[in-house]
Design a binder for these strands. Structure first.
Length: 596
RNA sequence: GGCGCUGUAGCUCAGUUGGUUAGAGCGCCGCCCUGUCACGGCGGAGGUCGUGGGUUCGAGCCCCAUCAGCGUCGCCA
């Protein structure tokens, strides 16, 4: 970054070849080294650090004695080579320094509450309160820079593939189902509300109906649900939709996008993404977002226990459940107490229990030794491909429940065995999702993704006979165990869309009221279309090796969905509520006692 | 809402089976220092141990409650 304003330069720009140049630098004091008779100041901006030297012979020296961390300076001076032996190889600007002619203190800073010139750990709440200082630190400067490059690479890529970026509104209609909406009350229509978009789903489909053919948008989405390290109430997606396409077309476009981004930004060449069916993913990894950086696939060992006398396993087998085995490399080194702790973790993930078999050199040991003799242990060892020194963990339950627990424990073992290298990028496609899944509470079919997803070829025939068996043209992109996003080929025939709504138990009136505008649009020549949306926050998080998307978002909210810097949300004056025809039903907050 | 971890100086942390005056590094303040770059040297200030209650002769440490932060389950069509 070389500034284009006269003699002004960035703090990362100057080199030995600039010797003799008369320049102006602006920046913050990163560090000051006072030798009494000579003062060095490291001046910092986004671009880098340049050493400024104050000599006692100069009038500016008196100012330099009063400078402190994070003061803001303008420095006018001359670029000169550093004396032999005093160059700093750690800095790109380390061969030169600025001999000061004049310094202006543009602003002073209070002593910052934490060190700005390092990435040392600081309690996150404090970082969020002083986010402007946190953002000055190297880590977030780097993360947001890379985020910019990733988004730019995406825009360039989609532009080159003839996608148009089109903005969609933030104030839209609430369409119940799905996540909880953020609502915005209407002043002009008392008692009525806009919703903030959970995604531009229907709008982008309508853009296809409108004939735009290929759409993309860097779109902000809002969902009022509980937060996680990888979930914020507002987040950003690269949202994509295209007409007259097949599922393979969408996968090709999106996969090439990621390959382009990784190459442009990280200089990494990605291999083709492996494809797994949803059923395969569950069977082999116990999750629909497997971490493919390592193997340790689950093994179905139900047959080995077909005639077991072990009551726990026998009853599972009788109930058509499954016994799933997971290899724990080096797990034989664990003590009984260690295995007990591991079983507790499994229970935390919903396991009814966990049986372990330790393949010790002196013969197998097990928490169910009475029922797992040496021959059985050998069968297990062969089945999971384990070696002496490994352990095998067994989970028995209904097939889905056992797979879910075993999948989470697979991640745990991968972590313990250091198989999840942050620099590895294991992308994958998961395809052939079921169209419906059983709603836990009502027991009725509910859309596995959203109700606009088209079933696969020939699947419509099943809707009256076996809807739960219907496969969808729905696909997820997965990276290192995170779901980056999902997409589908959409239903474009209005009669089919109505059929799905009916299937979900919506009445004619409800369809009209909630989705009438959309079904009407389908009636006017909607083209076949499909698309996808990827979570940019998660992509950037994984690209830069962070473990929370808060570290790739400039102003994130904490786990209680609070903006700690602004202190939002807050109550508002009664008069504002009156304008909106609202009255708060919230309990009167009790005085906050003893925060920190 | 459940479970887990955490809360001691401005920051990051240590603090023994409960025992006298709660420590370290960094930062901060002052003085000294002309080639440092995590500069160095000397000196100094700085603590309701998250909050409230309890047990005890005595609590940073034990117990109960509560607040806050993070992780996770539920939730996220």
């Amino acid at each position: 970054m070389v500034s284009d304003f006269g003699s002004r330069r960035s703090c990362g720009a100057l080199r030995a070849s600039d010797e003799g140049a008369v320049v102006e630098l602006n920046g913050w004091i990163n560090r000051r080294r006072d030798h009494g008779g000579l003062i060095f100041v490291d001046l910092r901006d986004r671009d880098g650090i340049t050493q400024i030297v104050f000599d006692p012979k100069q009038p500016a020296f008196a100012d330099a004695e009063r400078l402190r961390h994070e003061d803001v300076l303008r420095v006018n001076g001359t670029v000169r080579k550093r004396p032999i032996g005093t160059q700093n190889a750690k800095l790109p600007t380390g061969d030169i320094e600025i001999g000061v002619d004049r310094v202006d203190v543009l602003n002073r800073s209070l002593v910052p509450p934490f060190a700005v010139n390092t990435d040392d750990d600081v309690e996150e709440n404090l970082r969020l309160e002083y986010r402007y200082l946190d953002l000055r630190r190297p880590r977030l400067q780097r993360n947001l820079t890379i985020r910019h490059r990733i988004v730019k690479a995406m825009r360039d890529y989609f532009d080159s593939r003839e996608f148009l970026e089109i903005e969609t509104p933030m104030l839209i209609k609430s369409t119940p189902e799905g996540a909880r909406d953020y609502l915005v009350p209407s002043r002009i229509h008392p008692g009525s509300f806009y919703a903030l978009p959970q995604s531009p789903q229907l709008l982008k489909q309508i853009l296809m109906i409108a004939g735009f053919g290929r759409y993309m948008q860097i779109a902000r989405c809002m969902r009022d649900e509980d937060l996680r390290a990888d979930r914020q109430p507002e987040f950003t997606q690269v949202d994509v939709e295209m007409s007259f396409c097949t599922q393979d077309d969408v996968l090709e476009i999106m996969e090439t996008c990621m390959r382009h981004v990784w190459h442009e930004v990280l200089g990494v060449h990605l291999p083709p993404f492996p494809r797994l069916s949803h059923a395969q993913a569950l069977e082999r990894y116990g999750t629909d977002k497997p971490d493919l950086r390592f193997g340790l696939e689950l093994t179905d060992v139900t047959q080995i226990f077909a005639h077991t006398e072990f009551v726990v396993f026998a009853s599972v087998v009788r109930a058509s459940g499954a016994v799933l085995a997971l290899r724990y490399p080096g797990g034989a080194a664990l003590s009984r107490r260690d295995f007990d702790a591991l079983a507790e973790i499994a229970k935390g993930h919903g396991a009814k229990g966990m049986v372990w078999v330790s393949l010790d050199a002196g013969g197998p040991k097990s928490s169910a030794a009475k029922f797992i003799d040496a021959a059985t242990a050998e069968l297990l060892r062969e089945a999971v491909g384990a070696e002496n020194g490994d352990a095998i963990l067994l989970f028995a339950d209904a097939r889905g429940a056992a797979a879910s627990v075993a999948g989470k424990m697979r991640a745990e073992i991968g972590e313990r065995c250091s198989l999840r290298h942050p620099g590895d990028f294991a992308f994958a496609w998961v395809t052939d999702f079921p169209l419906f899944e059983r709603d836990e509470e009502s027991g009725l079919p509910a859309p596995a993704h959203h109700p606009f997803t088209a079933p696969g070829e020939g699947q419509w025939d099943l809707i009256d006979t076996d809807p739960m068996a219907m496969r969808a043209q729905h696909y997820d992109m997965v990276l290192n165990g995170f779901e980056l996003g999902s997409g589908s080929i959409r239903i474009h025939k209005p009669q089919f869309q109505r059929r799905i709504f009916e299937m979900l138990g919506l009445t004619e009136e409800q369809i009209e009221q909630r989705f009438g505008f959309f079904v009407k649009a389908l009636d006017y020549g909607a083209p076949p279309h499909g698309g996808m949306a990827l979570g940019i926050d998660r992509i950037v998080m994984l690209a830069v090796g962070e473990t929370s998307i808060r570290d790739v978002i400039a102003f994130p909210k904490n786990q209680m969905a609070r903006d700690v810097m602004m202190d939002a949300p807050t109550s508002v004056p009664e008069s504002l509520l009156r304008d909106l025809a609202l009255r708060s039903a919230a309990p009167v907050p009790r005085p906050q006692g003893g925060a920190q």
